[in-house]
């Protein structure tokens, strides 16, 4: 059982982490309506390490965005960490993203003007962590990911692998229940990419954090214990190894 962001120990929760029922998502592209997801039904339990695979444009990123409360489904029912996403206000979604969900992006998406330490600290700052607790937590996370010596550097002074590790640290800092990684290895060489997936696996194993990552790299996909393959907005296969 891991401590919550306020330091208290939470009670065991229901097993379901993400639940989708006939979820569709459509985008307007100019005047054309483009279906990104076409009726996806899916359950991801807490503590799972899941890879969402599929070719470019298959709907992987859209699925992750929906799971991360960044967007609402066009139709269907989506429950994330026991909350119905469609019923959440913007403020509730923000709180959910800032306290219980961590994001890792393909392009790292670190804030250039902030140091490594400050980048990791930022989500905690946004959600009112006290200074002392914030510092302690950031130092802990940086030490865990081997980034302590890089704490004062700016993102532009880091290699791709180091940047992605900082992004993992930022996602991990608020002590989330769910980490979503959208093609986290796409901008990395294969060795560094494996390192990143290795880190995610360790977070999953050590802390029981549910991790869902999207990839179309077969070598990376095999690292997950469950592979969900999406093709043209539909789940083509869902295999647990």
């Amino acid at each position: 059982m891991k401590p919550a962001s306020d330091g208290s120990v939470s009670m065991p929760r229901a097993m379901s982490c993400v639940r989708l029922r006939s979820v569709t998502k459509e985008y307007m592209l100019g005047k054309a309506l483009v279906p990104a997801l076409r009726g996806v039904t899916l359950d991801i339990d807490r503590g799972e390490l899941v890879c969402v695979a599929g070719p470019s444009g298959s709907g992987k990123t859209t699925l992750l965005h929906l799971m991360g409360c960044l967007d609402n489904p066009t139709a269907g029912e989506l429950t994330v960490l026991d909350k119905n996403v469609a019923e959440m206000s913007d403020g509730e979604a923000c709180r959910m993203r800032g306290t219980r969900i961590g994001f890792i992006f393909q392009s790292f998406s670190l804030i250039e003007v902030l140091s490594v330490f400050e980048n990791v600290e930022y989500p905690l700052l946004l959600h009112g962590w006290p200074v002392g607790g914030r510092r302690e937590r950031v130092e802990e996370v940086l030490a865990h990911l081997g980034l302590k010596d890089l704490a004062k550097r700016r993102p532009t002074q880091l290699s791709g692998g180091q940047r992605q590790r900082v992004a993992i640290a930022r996602a991990l800092a608020p002590n989330p229940d769910l980490i979503l990684a959208d093609e986290p290895t796409a901008n990395l060489d294969s060795t560094t990419g494996h390192d990143v997936i290795d880190w995610l696996s360790r977070l999953n194993g050590e802390y029981g954090i549910t991790i869902v990552f999207a990839s179309h790299d077969p070598k990376i996909i095999s690292a997950a214990r469950r592979n969900i393959n999406i093709v043209d907005g539909l789940i083509a296969s869902d295999v647990t190894l």
Binding site: D90, C94, G98, F103, F105, S109, I111, L126
Partner: peptide, 13 residues
């Protein structure tokens, strides 16, 4: 993109 990232990590409007 950075503003999108900030919103994604929990920044409110």
């Amino acid at each position: 993109q950075e503003l999108g990232t900030l919103r994604a990590v929990g920044a409110t409007r």
